[in-house]
Each structure stands twice: as C-alpha cells, then as structure tokens.
Computed example of a mutant assay.
Amino acid sequence: MDPDSASSVSRVPHGGDGDPAVVDFSANTNPKRPPGTAAAYDAAYGPATRYPDDEYADYRAAAADYVDCDPSDVVPTAGGLTALRLAFGVTVAPGDDVLVPEPSFGEYDREIRLQGATPVPVAHDGILEADPAEYAAAVVCTPNNPTGEAAAPDDLRDFLARCRAADTALVVDEAFLDFTDDPSLAGKSGAIVARSLTKMFGLPGLRAGFAVATGGLGDGLDAARPTWGLSVPAAAVGAHCMRQSTFVEETKARVAAERARMRDRLEADFEVFPSDAPFLLLGVDGDVDALLAHARERGFALRDARTFPTLDSHVRVAVRLPEENEALVDALSAFA
C-alpha cells in the first residue's frame, strides 16, 4: 500500500440495511444458509481458543473442490475484498495504470488508488475488447455488479490470453459466479481469481473467501497474506458450506426461476437489465428518491444505484424468497 495515497482515498457506499423493520433487497446475499451451518459454527468454539493452523489445509481442500483447482493454489482470505487487496498488492505499484469496468464494484477503484495507482475505466460490456498492454493489471467482474451480466467464457479466456501476452495480470472477481453454470478461471496461468462466500451462503458477517493463482502470482499472494488471516469459525464454516453441493444447486435453480419471474413483471414499468446474478438493475423513469421512500414505507430497502459511476436513475434489487419477491414487485408496480 502507498502511504501517500491512503489519506486521500474515501470509503465506498454499499448495500445492506440493518433495520429489522424492512426486508433488505439492497444487499445481494442469500436469505438461506446451508443445513448444518450453525452446528459447524458452534463446533468451532473450542478450537477458537487456540490460534488457527496457518496452513488451512481443510479449507484449501474444500475451496479447491469448489472451483476445480489445486489446493496449493488457494489462498484463504477474510472475504473476497481481502482477496482483491492482496491481488492488487502483488501486481500494482505507485504510478501504474489498471483497467477497470464501469459501472462496477466500487472497491476496485479504492483498492487500486490505495496502491498509488490509477484506475482507468472502460465500459463494463466492452472491457474484454480492450487492449491490456501498458497496464499493470486488468479487472473483470463476472457476473458484473451492478449490471448483472456474466462474461462469455470464451471471450474471457481470449482476454486472459491477451493479458498473458502483454504481461498484464488479470484479476477476476467471481463473487457471483457460483449462481451461474460458467467455469471459473481459478488455476489458469496469469489470472488471480477472487471468491467470496458471502453471496451464495448468506454469511456476510463471517468474512470468508479466497484467492486462486498459480506460479509466481500464487507465490506472491501466499507470501503476502496475513498470518492467521482467516478465523477458526470462518475456516470451519466456510469449508462446511463449500461442500454443500445440493444447497448450491437448489439455490441456483431458485434464483434463476425467481429472477425470470421478477423480470417478467418489472419490465412493464422499468428498464430491466439482463442478469445472470442474484439481483436486477432497474432503470427508473421518474424520481429515484421517491421510489426509494415508497419502497421503504412498504417495508423494503432497495439499493440506490446512483452511487455507481454512469448510473443516474437506477436502483438495484436482490432476488430473495418467492413471497418476498412477490411483495416487492407489487409495491414497485404500485409506485409506477
């Protein structure tokens, strides 16, 4: 991290509403948890009285099975954001330029600036066509947040090949990829993959995730990761969750069906962006503040997407449980 840059970088707005009186559609987390999660957390209480085993062998093995890579290429992290910080920390230096999609997750910009580097925005749907030469790194978010579309796997692999040829590290944020059937880039040469357990498993407060990279990139990530960087409960619960394949498949099917049903109804009143993720971006033809207030008065928190660059009249809504989704769509239709 560049000390001269730290004081000039601000915090980034995110979704998430702690008001128990509203249903939170502003954060894209699964409202369900895998069976046995609470028991796994409770069982970690005793071992948590000791330091974690810094090798995290069981967690690495579960993560490797989850994304189909070698366990030695897995780097445990306290959430996907820590994986991103490590990725930029080992690839970006002060004065460098980094390609980033826009609009997309605001933490890319922040983390790059903390390294003393400059994020160079490219339209989110055109970044795979950009020339990665002369950049220290390039970032792809798939599916992209907040727009929702996943990168075409063949196009992403082609972009990775061009990044390798240009000696540009490709940082791939796959926080929502497990809601799709697309293959991960985990274990591919030249790529650093960042994964989060927050979204699929509905545990944002646990802070569990991992990075995957091979060769020198992987060695750099593992050397730079904090010692005991993943708590005992996070490692135990994370490993348990990643082995719940039935839960993952059921969640994917539910989200896909509910997303399509919500889209069919919302398209009558809003511009609905194509999405492969557990959320929908809506273009609002009217007063966004009034829509947010209308939803809250009826018990729903939405994500004000105007905080994302290039979005000036948009909200993002998560895909939750069927009865919750139905109630939200009724409320939004009444506003329109």
Rank of each mutant, 00 (worst) to 15 (best):
M242C: 13
V67N: 04
L185Y: 09
P52G: 02
D264K: 11
V171N: 11
V272W: 10
E323P: 00
A150V: 04
V212D: 07
A336Q: 02
T142N: 08
G95K: 11
D24S: 06
T147Q: 07
A27R: 07
G36W: 02
P35W: 14
F176P: 12
A208Y: 05
D42K: 11
A40W: 08
S231G: 12
T91W: 10
V75G: 06
G209Q: 07
A138R: 04
S5A: 12
A38Q: 13
A136K: 03
L292A: 10
D53C: 07
E250V: 10
I127C: 02
P233H: 05
P76H: 13
E324N: 00
R85C: 08
S231V: 06
Y108T: 05
A123D: 13
P233G: 04
G18L: 15
E107F: 04
G89V: 12
A117N: 00
A6G: 04
K199P: 07
E326F: 00
T142R: 01
E174T: 13
F179E: 02
I112S: 02
G79F: 13
R261L: 08
T91H: 09
G46E: 15
L81G: 04
H294C: 11
A293V: 10
L128W: 03
G299S: 05
P132Y: 03
A117S: 02
F159W: 08
R157F: 00
R50C: 04
A83P: 05
A327G: 08
D304E: 10
M262Y: 03
L291D: 09
F105K: 08
A43I: 10
T118Q: 12
V139D: 00
T77G: 12
A318G: 04
G18P: 01
A253V: 02
A39T: 02
R60H: 13
E323C: 05
Y108K: 01
A137H: 01
G299T: 11
E107M: 12
D285P: 10
A208R: 00
R60G: 10
P76Y: 09
L266E: 08
G89Q: 06
D154I: 00
N145E: 15
A169Q: 05
P183S: 02
L156Y: 00
R298I: 14
G283S: 11
D155S: 04
P35V: 14
F279I: 12
V98L: 02
A38T: 12
D97F: 02
D96Y: 08
D182F: 05
L197C: 13
V9G: 04
D70V: 09
F179K: 05
V172M: 11
T29R: 02
A48W: 12
P20Y: 03
R85Y: 09
P20E: 01
G15V: 01
V120N: 01
F247T: 06
R50I: 11
D289V: 14
A268D: 13
D312K: 14
P13H: 08
P204R: 00
L86E: 05
S10E: 06
A234S: 08
V288Y: 12
G215S: 11
L206E: 13
